[in-house]
Write a protein that binds this DNA or RNA. Structure first.
Lengths: 232, 232
DNA sequence: CGCTCTATTGATAAACCTCAAATACAGTGG
DNA sequence: CCACTGTATTTGAGGTTTATCAATAGAGCG
């Protein structure tokens, strides 16, 4: 199991691309390791952003809430990825809430520590910038999807994205290895749990997927891709 | 007129906050100045991102298009602001298209020049990071609005945002000093020009605004704010 | 003063949400 | 192993919002 590694394999991820092995170990060593159980809140929207966080195992779900009720899922943070880079700058607040989706381990640095690290490794700031720019692009893409596409298309894209990020091959097809409720998928795609349910049922009848309680298995990814791209 | 200044006043803007006068002048001097007329394309989505751009006069409109037809307005870039920071990193493409909204002046740097500048001024990378993080937050906020709010509320927020960014006091009220068609406002809020037209007409009848061809004057900002916040 | 682009408005239809009720499922404790 | 309980899911009916289509009116420009 990877979980036993002292440090995660971050060499292939966006962050740390500019650092060599020794530097990486030194940077990681200066952070503080923490563990969270499923559902634990790692930080909350509106709190002062005190720590930059690197996920080393498990995963985080970032959400933004809108006046008691509706919540939008902004992104999932996978092992090897940073979040809360905003904490590099003073007196700001977290713009989102982060919850662990499973047993999750993090390494985090407070502001002075991160500034000192960035001072020692100026290239790391470029890494953080690259990650931020990529995410900006990704969110802008979702903004466009949300404006230009119908619900069913958006759900198709979301399922495919989640499949790529968290898919695991099984006998039946590709299982999305997350406990994902209809409500959460709705929050991610900007619709309601009822609509998501209807859509998934429909795809089930078509044989494209097989879905159950907090469980989606993609059987015919090609059909989904075609559907997401082509308007029909 | 500010336009005659050799360099724009960037001291109060997000970028360059960390640099002193002399450094700023040196950095700006290493860039290339260009001028564009209204509607000119500064760069196009999908092209290789060769230059980081600072707007010094006028303004840019960033858009993203979705398969022949629908286009979403991602953001307006005002004087003193950067865009296309993605060009700092190799072999990427511009994720959006930038068009001048009026007579516009820019200073831009190609990748080697910008890397050399970042090398001389490591803190500038932090500045760019801060801008990227702020924009990420802003776009995530719009994503949430788009998911949680009705069209009329979103249009209200958009009008207020544009008023704050480009408002100019007149006898009647606050004029939004942009040539903004219903179509553009629709692209910015994720709806259609017909719906925008109906909404603006309605507000006109209520006396909240006064609107005409490519022209919006906000007469009662307070009413709009109340409407945008409160669900009614 | 005609041409073109923009805006308005009505009628209609489609997409989607909301509410309500029934059903399935997973985990728990007996 | 089974009943129980709390969630999650499904599905239907009906209503609302918003898009679409079509036609007209207005504004600016050469």
């Amino acid at each position: 199991m990877k979980a036993e590694d002292p440090f995660p394999d971050t060499s292939k991820t966006a962050a740390f691309a500019e650092l060599d092995e020794a530097e990486r170990a030194s940077v990681l060593g200066r952070g503080e390791r923490r563990r969270y159980g499923p559902g634990d809140v790692v930080f909350r929207e509106g709190e002062p952003a005190r720590r930059v966080i690197l996920v080393t195992a498990g995963g985080l779900k970032l959400t933004k809430v809108h006046e008691e009720g509706k919540e939008a899922i902004v992104r999932y943070i996978k092992p090897g990825e940073f979040t809360a880079a905003i904490a590099v700058f003073s007196e700001k607040e977290y713009p989102v809430t982060a919850k662990a989706v499973s047993n999750t381990e993090t390494i985090s640095w407070n502001r002075p520590a991160m500034l000192s690290i960035l001072n020692d490794h100026p290239l790391l700031a470029l890494d953080l910038l690259r990650v931020a720019v990529e995410r900006l692009d990704e969110v802008q893409g979702r903004l466009l999807e949300l404006q230009a596409e119908r619900v069913e298309q958006r759900v198709a894209r979301a399922v495919l994205r989640l499949m790529e990020q968290s898919g695991r091959k099984t006998g039946e097809g590709i299982l999305i290895d997350l406990r994902l409720t209809r409500q959460e998928l709705a929050d991610y795609t900007g619709t309601t749990l009822y609509t998501v349910s209807r859509i998934l049922s429909g795809w089930g009848r078509l044989g494209w997927i097989q879905s159950g309680r907090e469980r989606i298995v993609v059987i015919d990814p090609h059909a989904l891709v075609e559907f997401a791209e082509g308007a029909s």
